[in-house]
Amino acid sequence: MTVLGAVSMPHLPPEHLAAAADAAEHSGVDELWVWEDCFWGGAIASAATILARTERIRVGIGVMPTPLRNVAVTAMELSVLLRAHPGRLVPGVGHGVQEWMGQIGARVESPLTLLREQLDALRGLLGGEKVSVDGRYVRLDGVSLVYPPTVPTQLIAAASGPKTLRLAGRYADGVTLTSSTSPEGVRAARTLIAEGVAKSGRTRPHRLIANIEAATGPDAAERLARAQATRPSHQPGAGVAGDAHAIADAVHRYVEAGADTVILQPTEDDPDLVGFIRFIGEQVRPLVS
């Protein structure tokens, strides 16, 4: 069965996170995802708020920028949530928007190296290992968590370019693609990810998460067009505007292209960000097998 989720957009004020959590929990979506866009709400705090409010749904973090925090701090914070809510958190990391990383003085010369080093160290720490590493960016000296997660952790990486897709296939357990990716782009990404998985030696399934920007309502097509016009990387065929049936059809196209999970995100100017989550669960979920 296709995993279907929705995004709680960072544009939703923090005081409305509880309403977003309730909408997801009671409407039927499988997962609710939060972003860590600078300089909106922090992903760890947002995820913790939603997890504490819910019992059924999984919460995804898509994604924490690796230059933003020390990997030991990331592991410490994640371990709390993974132990307090076992099996319900899907943590993700990525390069981050380089302009934002420059604003905070954290931009690195090789984002690819940083991502690899953080994924490797984070996997070890969350796996209960004592980690020592002297990398280009990550340096740990006999670091281990006092309270590592009690269940295996599924680490997700954000990727779009060929090098990052291959790296994510090798070092992560899943990949999340941007909403600018079309079904054809999903097919191409699946091939590149498989090359990385083959080098990893791991045999468990590698999760591919497609994000679809979706708009519904009388002005859906106009809102989607405005949103996509701001993204130079937008691929023809990405996104969908229309009613529940049109959105469900788009979900099926992405699944046929190789997505295991589809996360639907509203446009930033959606007039009802919480209502969008409820719409996905109540009207789209029953149409997606």
Rank of each mutant, 00 (worst) to 15 (best):
G128W: 12
S27Q: 08
M76V: 08
S79F: 08
D30C: 02
E117H: 11
G96W: 09
L122C: 10
W100I: 06
Q103V: 13
V108M: 11
D22A: 00
S79A: 14
T54C: 11
Y137Q: 06
H26G: 00
Q118I: 05
M64D: 07
V34R: 01
G127I: 12
R69E: 15
G87R: 04
R53G: 02
S27K: 00
R136A: 12
V63D: 09
I57L: 11
E55I: 01
S46F: 01
V97D: 15
R116S: 11
H85P: 05
P91G: 04
V63L: 09
I50D: 03
I44G: 01
M64E: 12
R123I: 12
D134I: 03
G92K: 05
R107M: 15
I61Q: 03
E77A: 07
D120E: 15
W40K: 02
Q118L: 05
Y137K: 07
V97F: 14
K130V: 14
P67N: 10
A23P: 07
L81K: 06
W33Y: 11
G62F: 08
T54E: 08
E36P: 02
S46I: 03
Q98F: 05
W33D: 07
E129N: 09
E109P: 05
I44N: 02
V63I: 13
G102P: 10
I104A: 13
I61G: 03
R88A: 01
V97T: 09
L114E: 07
S110P: 14
R107G: 12
W35C: 00
V80P: 02
L51H: 08
A72Q: 09
D22P: 00
A19H: 03
R83L: 12
I44K: 00
P67Q: 10
W100F: 14
D134L: 05
P91Q: 02
V133T: 15
P111Y: 14
V71W: 06
N70I: 01
P111M: 14
L112V: 14
R56G: 06
I44S: 02
S46P: 04
V93M: 11
L82S: 04
A23W: 08
M64N: 06
R123L: 09
P67L: 07
F39W: 05
S27W: 11
V29P: 03
V108A: 09
P65A: 04
S46A: 11
V63K: 02
A52F: 01
E117R: 08
F39Q: 03
Q118C: 06
S110I: 12
R83D: 15
L78H: 10
R69K: 14
L112T: 12
R123Q: 15
R88H: 07
